[in-house]
Computed example of a mutant assay.
Amino acid sequence: MDTKRCLFCNKIVSFQVKDEKEIYTGCCCAPESNYSLTVESYASFASLSLDLSRQAFPIISGYIRNSTVCGEKVDVSFEDLETICNSADIPVTIEEKEYLLLRYLYKQCTGPDEPIHIRPLSEHYNLAYSRNLQEFVYIIERLRDKKWIERSGTTFQLTKDGWDETAARMAKIAPEPCVILLHKTSLQQIWRDLVPPLLKQYGFHARFVETSNLNESLELISECKLLVADLSDDTSRGCFAAGYALGIGIHVISTIPYSLREALPRLTNQLNTIYWEKTEDLSTALRTTLYALSPSVHQEEAK
């Protein structure tokens, strides 16, 4: 695979040309994903003045980073320059960028004092839409001065005050309705203890329903923003409900015990399926999936 410099983060990375688009993989803009840039746009972006590129490229890099973290496919063209840079979703003040970093840390952990690694810092300052590493470090130090985070090198921890502050801010955002669909009685206590707190952390208010009452289930699903469906038992009803949700544009997360991973290969390909064996596996995978889904769900509601 060929390599090329990403204009927005200045890193040399793998790229390929497909359908008149250059696809950049693994740069600082999309470290665990990729983004595409129309072929003709590269020269247009590269021809911008030094002052304009210094202003615009960090914003575009932050836009790509935060979009790909949410699981979105990002296609950039030169015509998008003004739209991205002038978007109301782009943080402008230092305080807005502080909250963006706080929210990122909050969603990476289960509680205060839990270590979160961001390394190297020089490749992650776009998390807060910072224009450079110096501004990112300045934001970090402000959060330390407020006693909201602790830092040791590239290891970060939310303090209790930082955790409470972030939770309070997120609580001001009206929680989105979510349905948890269950069947297997023996697993219900695990779900009732584990899943609602996670959903609350990511901005959802959960309601439990059972597949035994399918009419009620479908009515509640039609009013929700997210369906979490346990497909460990009664799979025909569960898959029907999940398919119904997908058909009307509801986000779906399905879960299946690892021992049943071969049972539903076709039905679950597009259901954000989590295969799990231990409770810890389910918790970790749910957290990762919710982190990717929750911003896009809230953005859709805002529209």
Results as ranks from 00 to 15, higher is better:
residue 179 V to M: 08
residue 213 N to D: 15
residue 88 A to V: 13
residue 137 V to F: 05
residue 280 E to H: 09
residue 119 R to H: 15
residue 269 N to F: 06
residue 235 T to I: 07
residue 37 L to Y: 02
residue 293 L to V: 04
residue 261 R to T: 06
residue 209 V to D: 06
residue 90 I to Y: 09
residue 92 V to A: 05
residue 91 P to V: 00
residue 124 H to T: 08
residue 119 R to M: 08
residue 281 D to Q: 01
residue 92 V to R: 11
residue 207 R to M: 08
residue 171 A to D: 06
residue 229 A to L: 10
residue 86 N to L: 14
residue 42 Y to S: 00
residue 242 A to N: 04
residue 115 P to H: 03
residue 178 C to S: 03
residue 58 P to V: 05
residue 83 T to E: 14
residue 97 K to G: 00
residue 205 H to C: 10
residue 237 R to N: 07
residue 159 T to I: 02
residue 260 L to T: 09
residue 64 I to S: 07
residue 107 K to M: 12
residue 189 Q to H: 08
residue 148 W to K: 07
residue 40 E to L: 11
residue 29 C to G: 03
residue 70 C to H: 14
residue 41 S to L: 02
residue 26 G to D: 02
residue 189 Q to L: 09
residue 207 R to S: 11
residue 202 Y to I: 03
residue 136 F to W: 10
residue 148 W to L: 15
residue 189 Q to T: 14
residue 114 E to H: 09
residue 225 K to I: 02
residue 74 V to S: 06
residue 102 L to S: 07
residue 83 T to C: 03
residue 236 S to I: 11
residue 78 F to W: 06
residue 267 L to Q: 15
residue 88 A to S: 15
residue 114 E to N: 09
residue 120 P to R: 04
residue 85 C to T: 14
residue 14 S to I: 07
residue 73 K to F: 08
residue 124 H to K: 13
residue 195 V to M: 13
residue 276 W to E: 02
residue 244 Y to K: 08
residue 56 A to P: 02
residue 254 S to P: 00
residue 235 T to L: 04
residue 186 S to M: 12
residue 251 H to E: 11
residue 235 T to E: 06
residue 24 Y to F: 15
residue 165 E to P: 00
residue 105 L to E: 06
residue 147 K to Q: 12
residue 160 K to D: 11
residue 245 A to S: 02
residue 40 E to H: 11
residue 213 N to H: 10
residue 192 R to Q: 14
residue 174 A to V: 12
residue 187 L to I: 11
residue 216 E to Y: 12
residue 3 T to L: 00
residue 215 N to A: 08
residue 223 E to N: 10
residue 34 N to F: 15
residue 173 I to G: 00
residue 159 T to Y: 01
residue 102 L to C: 08
residue 235 T to H: 05
residue 174 A to C: 05
residue 301 E to P: 00
residue 81 L to D: 01
residue 284 T to D: 09
residue 194 L to F: 04
residue 200 K to N: 08
residue 276 W to G: 04
residue 49 S to E: 15
residue 124 H to R: 15
